[in-house]
Each structure stands twice: as C-alpha cells, then as structure tokens.
Design a protein around this nucleic acid. Structure first.
Length: 328
DNA sequence: TCCATTTGACCGAC
DNA sequence: GTCGGTCAAATGGA
C-alpha cells in the first residue's frame, strides 16, 4: 500500500508504522495492568484491549505488507469474504465421494469486537449454524451468522459463549461486519460502507446518534470532538476500567489513547455519520433495534452507555469495529 | 411446506 | 494429533 501510487507515501507510512508500534506497546502495557486488576470488569476490559491489539497488529501487518494485500493476504478480515458472499472455496466432492467433504478457510478472520453482555440480542438477526464444546471450558460455544447471509451475502458472524464465572453473562465475539441492509436493523437507511470512524463517549453518544440519524454533514467536527473526549473524559471516569484510583495509570492510558488516536488519524479520517456501516448490532449503546436513543440495549447500568465505533483510523481495515465502553 | 435449530462429521490451522 | 470452525443432514415447530 505504502508504495502504491494511490496509497500513502512511503515516508508517511513508515511514520504511521512507528506510531502504531508505540500504540501497540502502550496497549500491551495497559493489558499487563489489567491483568493485575481485581475487578469483575477486568475480563471485559481485557477483551477490549485484545481487540485493540488485534486491530493494531492488523494495521501494522497491512503497512508492512505494503501491496501484499492485493495478493490475497489475510490482513483484512472482512475483505476476504466481503460483499461477494460465497467467497469460501468449496469442494463439493472429494476423492472419497463423500458429499460432506469440502474445503474452507478457517481462522482467517480477526475478531472485530468482543464484549460481555447479559443478553444475546443486539439488534441484528442471527442464525445459529453450529455449537461446539470447547476445551478447558465448561460452556459450549455457539456459532451464529447473519440471517442475511443467503439473501444479501452479509458475512457478519458472532460467537457466543457463556461466562465461566457468571453463566448469566455471555462473551460475544463478532467477526466481520454487517453488509446487509435490513430496514429493521438498520433504521438509518443506506449509507456509505466505510463510515466507521465514529467515536462516541458518554453523553456524547447522544450527539452521535443525533448526528447519525440526521446524516449530519459535520461528522468531522463530531469525530474531532469525540476524539478529544477520548483523551480526557474517558480516562477520568470511574465507570470505565476503574482506573482513576491508580496513580500513574491515568497518564498511561492518556498516553495510550493519544498514541492510538494520533497514529490512526481518527480526527482526520473521512468519517461519515448516518451510516449503515455502523455496526449497530454490536452497538448496544447505539440505536439498535429501533428502540431509539442511546443505551437502549441493554440498558447501561451506570448510564454511561458509551462505545467506540471504528477501527481506530481504519488503517488497512474496513471493519466497523465497536468497542463498548460502558459497564458490562 | 418452510424455516430455524440441532448435531455429528469434516477439515484446516496449529 | 488435537482443536475448533463450518457444513449439511436430521429434526422440530409454526
């Protein structure tokens, strides 16, 4: 990419790569800190951090690979399957003649989001296609794909597994993004596919919803404002990660956020509000299900109802990643 | 009859 | 060789 004619100049790509390295290191430090937390929300926070790490690694790999992505690399989790629907290579019959034999790629996707929730509803319609007993886990894992896979080629998937400690809660891992256009799940109508650089926090999420619902053209301003809050309000809230009592942690997180935002270029991204590309399925605090407003699903216990949408600048990615920031 | 779920088997990644 | 993700036939409900 960096060397491509239409891509970012090589020197800028190198600088972005360096920033990504720093951001990744910061997230790694943050993760190490989370491992020491004795808080019930720590696993959730770690999941968020892992998702961030995945995205950063993906972005770095994309930069490193340069134009390799065009050669069919596995850097883009959604691109491989994409809107083409049945991109999965299938061999209908093997040498044995068993019609059940087939070929498919596995683990080619990175999680686009991971969250812990008390309900399986997320505003999207899922179809279960498998369940599996997982090693070292008493809870089976269920596999879902978007019900619109067949008719619209939507390749969004999710995995659901009950929490070990609290079976009333579920660990939901999302893969890919919804490309479907179900009016019942995407109330805002058609919109650009890559409107994924939207960040909202706290009360600002209302503004996000409002901006989105109205298709506001000032999305850049909104993103800039939200990004600013990312480095300030977020870290100051006890409702998020419960960091504020730990001396030094705030600075660490602040640096991390700054690095992530700066490296990913969130503020300067070409976000467009009011997009169907926003993963409202994962967007618990968003406008899922048409119930309206923020925090409609599930109700946020602390009213924070915050989440992050976007792939931190969409460096080499086109996923609508969503990192929920409210209390699980 | 249609559609969603269940479940055993297949098969690629590790 | 093991594990886990996916397929597809079987099953059940509307």
């Amino acid at each position: 990419m960096a060397s491509s004619g239409r891509g970012v100049p090589a020197e800028r790509a190198a600088a972005a790569a360096n920033d990504l390295v720093e951001a990744r290191d910061g997230v790694a430090t943050l993760k190490a800190f989370l491992l020491q937390l004795d808080d019930q929300r720590a696993p959730w926070a770690q999941g968020v951090v892992d998702a961030v790490l995945d995205r950063l690694s993906s972005a770095m790999a994309a930069l490193d690979a340069g134009g390799a992505a065009a050669t069919g690399g596995q850097l883009s989790p959604a691109a491989g399957s994409g809107s083409g629907g049945g991109a999965r290579p299938q061999q209908s019959v093997s040498s044995s003649g068993n019609t059940k034999k087939r070929s498919f790629s596995r683990r080619s996707q990175r999680p686009t989001d991971t969250k812990i929730t008390s309900t399986l509803e997320d505003g999207h319609i899922w179809r279960k296609y498998g369940q599996k007993e997982i090693q070292n886990s008493r809870q089976p894992r269920s596999y879902y794909r978007c019900t619109h896979k067949s008719d619209q080629g939507c390749n969004a998937k999710r995995q659901v597994q009950a929490c070990e400690g609290d079976t009333c809660k579920y660990v939901v891992t999302y893969y890919g993004v919804h490309t479907c256009r179900d009016p019942s799940t995407i109330p805002l109508g058609a919109a650009p596919d890559r409107a994924n650089n939207l960040i909202s926090f706290g009360a600002t999420s209302n503004a996000a919803a409002a901006a989105a619902s109205t298709g506001a053209s000032s999305s850049h301003q909104y993103v800039a404002m939200a990004a600013d809050q990312l480095s300030t309000s977020w870290c100051a809230s006890d409702d998020v990660f419960s960091f504020s009592s730990s001396a030094g942690s705030l600075m660490q997180v602040d640096e991390l956020i700054g690095a992530v935002v700066a490296s990913a270029g969130v503020v300067t991204s070409t976000a467009t509000a009011g997009s169907a590309g926003l993963d409202r399925g994962g967007g618990f605090g968003g406008v899922a299900g048409g119930s309206g407003g923020t925090g409609s699903f599930p109700p946020s216990q602390n009213g924070l109802g915050s989440f992050v949408v976007g792939s931190f600048g969409s460096v080499g990615g086109d996923d609508d990643d969503l990192f929920r920031m409210d209390d699980p």
